[in-house]
Nucleic acid binder design. Structure first.
Length: 598
DNA sequence: GTAGGGTTAG
């Protein structure tokens, strides 16, 4: 008998807050208590989500034609099926549907939309069979205003109550990043089924609203709607991003218990969930179990190894992938280059960057260059890194400059740091992270005047630092902590005790990381209460002895916390997994899986 | 006959 699990919604408004606890056992189905959060369904849609349908046909013709016709004409006339362009001729509606469906399924979305418009021009009425594919095409093209017009036209044609059309509309708005509108359509649907729920859940994950996606997942289950493979893919994706391991495991159990098909989609989502939750062994187990694998699956495995500091395993996986005759793509090489970065494998990274172009004919994107700049910069090879940035065939983006700036911080390279920061701030003057990075470089060399100037610029421009936030799951409840939080006395006392103990082991707070020029004692306390340290103290207090402490942070871990965690893992004999914004740090016995490269 | 799915720099 599996453990009974209950689910609670995320409680908002408290400093330490519970997201959810894991769910019910698969046998007993998921017991969903009353909602505590109003985060999801009260989200008001943007005005005009249900625009007046009155002038629908004209709206389609006028607003859509001007937008689409100019873009489509060049390749339309050369297309293999120009028969519908005999404007003014009667067009058979069945033929139109057939052609639209064909174009949409082939990914020729502009063609699909264009045929739809021709139908309006010659007075052929579309039906639900026509709206569904054309809405899909509009969604893929991300044409918001066109989508609203087609929505209005569907209402006018009285087919918006159809479950297929409704689901297509949910998909349309979420694809256009208008998730509030998608939810409004969903709420107003007279008939819903599993597919409509899946469309909304997936929409929330695509819109990066992961906690809300899980709220919906819980609602769907409570409503007794069938949870399918597609549902689980969406929910697992949300778990992966949130680091919600216990819920992810529950879903895995459900898949096994209910015999859901571990196809490429679901298997890849599971592999990715375990990877992003730092559970590397479970990730490998799922991968081995899977019978159907494709390039997505391999990519999830390779980047999973990479972010968890298993660079060699990532490279071995790549070799196996090639042996199994799978063709790697750009994402595969991103994982490989990322693995080389985290392992500091400069020569290997250069080799794979070359292979990518020469053997596989893949043109490196800006993200591949980003990895190479990181690899070279973190290795202290600044001339090569700068040469690459200045000579690549793409315009350097802010991430490229920020990566170089980060390497300058690692190696205390103030002159190049200034140069990179100037380039970066030209492109991205309002991102606080850029100022903090440069300030950290100055602070390492006690350049307090420069820091004061930076602070003045930030104040003048009204730029505030992003608050550090760390979460930890204890007993199936996720607690969140904010940096310099108002601590409970017992957590503060424990942190003080830990610090005293660590000081005896030679730990001294790295006060150079404080953004401002402040008194030594204050500097120490500002890094002393970084959110990950608070989460760690809470974890030491509340988790069973010997269990792995898993913490997730929204920003990159600072050098001081990194040292702190290493010593805690040694002194307290605990394994600690810390996921920061870019990668995992697995601490054990006084060292970290990242080998201090991050 | 129409709708819903996975990987991706720092």
């Amino acid at each position: 008998m599996k453990r009974p699990l209950t689910l609670t919604a995320r409680a908002r408004g408290s400093r330490v807050r519970a997201y959810f606890s894991a769910s019910a056992s698969p046998e007993t189905r998921w017991q969903t208590p009353e909602r505590q959060s109003t985060a999801v369904s009260t989200n008001p849609p943007a005005a005009g989500a249900r625009a007046s349908p009155a002038p629908a046909r004209h709206a389609v013709q006028a607003s859509l034609m001007s937008l689409v016709e100019s873009r489509v004409r060049s390749d339309w006339w050369g297309s293999p099926s120009p028969l519908l362009l005999q404007l003014g001729e009667p067009i058979d509606s069945r033929l139109c549907r057939h052609v639209i469906r064909g174009y949409t399924s082939q990914g020729k979305h502009l063609h699909s939309v264009f045929v739809f418009i021709q139908m309006q021009r010659v007075g052929v009425r579309p039906d639900s069979f026509t709206f569904a594919p054309v809405l899909k095409s509009v969604a893929r093209l991300c044409l918001r205003e066109m989508g609203r017009s087609v929505h209005a036209y569907a209402a006018k044609a009285n087919v918006d109550g159809d479950v297929y059309v409704g689901t297509s509309l949910v998909n349309l708005y979420s694809g256009c990043m208008l998730i509030g509108d998608a939810h409004k359509v969903f709420d107003e649907m007279g008939e819903r089924n599993s597919v409509s729920w899946n469309a909304l859940i997936t929409g929330y994950t695509h819109n990066r609203k992961f906690a809300e996606a899980l709220d919906l997942f819980r609602e769907m289950q409570a409503d007794g709607v069938e949870l399918t493979e597609v549902t689980m893919v969406g929910a697992l994706s949300a778990c992966a991003h949130l680091g919600a391991l216990s819920l992810g495991k529950w879903i895995h159990e459900y898949i096994d218990c209910y015999g859901l098909s571990l196809n490429e989609f679901l298997g890849t989502a599971l592999v990715d969930m375990y990877a992003k939750c730092g559970a590397v062994m479970e990730m490998e187990k799922v991968f081995i179990t899977m019978r159907a694998k494709n390039v997505y699956t391999w990519n999830a495995l390779i980047s999973g190894f990479a972010i968890n500091g298993h660079g060699e395993a990532a490279l071995q996986a790549f070799s196996r992938m090639i042996m199994e005759n799978l063709k790697p793509d750009g994402v595969t090489f991103l994982g490989i280059l990322c693995a080389c970065c985290h392992e500091g494998l400069v020569d290997e990274g250069k080799k794979y960057f070359g292979i990518m172009k020469e053997e596989f004919g893949l043109r490196p994107g800006i993200e591949h260059y980003g990895c190479m700049v990181d690899l070279l910069g973190q290795a202290g090879l600044f001339s090569e890194a700068l040469h690459l940035v200045q000579n690549m065939d793409l315009k350097p983006d802010p991430i490229i400059w920020r990566t170089l700036l980060g390497a300058c911080r690692t190696h205390r390279n103030v002159p190049l740091g200034r140069y990179a920061a100037r380039k970066l701030l030209e492109l991205e003057p309002t991102n606080a992270e850029n100022y903090v990075l440069l300030s950290n470089i100055y602070a390492q060399d006690s350049m307090w005047d420069e820091i004061a100037q930076l602070r003045a610029v930030m104040n003048q421009r009204g730029i505030a630092k992003v608050a550090g936030c760390s979460s930890i799951e204890i007993g199936n409840v996720v607690y969140e902590f904010v940096a310099s939080d108002c601590l409970k006395p017992e957590v503060r006392d424990l942190l003080d005790d830990i610090r005293k103990e660590l000081k005896q082991m030679g730990y001294a707070a790295n006060t150079g990381l404080a953004l401002y020029d402040i008194e030594e004692e204050e500097k120490e306390s500002s890094v002393a209460f970084h959110s990950e340290k608070i989460a760690l103290a809470f974890g030491l207090m509340k988790s069973p002895p010997g269990s792995t402490i898993r913490i997730i942070k929204n920003l990159r871990v600072c050098q001081d916390c990194h040292v702190f965690f290493k010593i805690v893992s040694l002194v307290y004999k605990r394994e600690i997994s810390l996921r920061d914004r870019n990668q995992f740090h697995h601490f054990a016995g006084g060292s970290c899986s990242c080998r201090d490269h991050w």
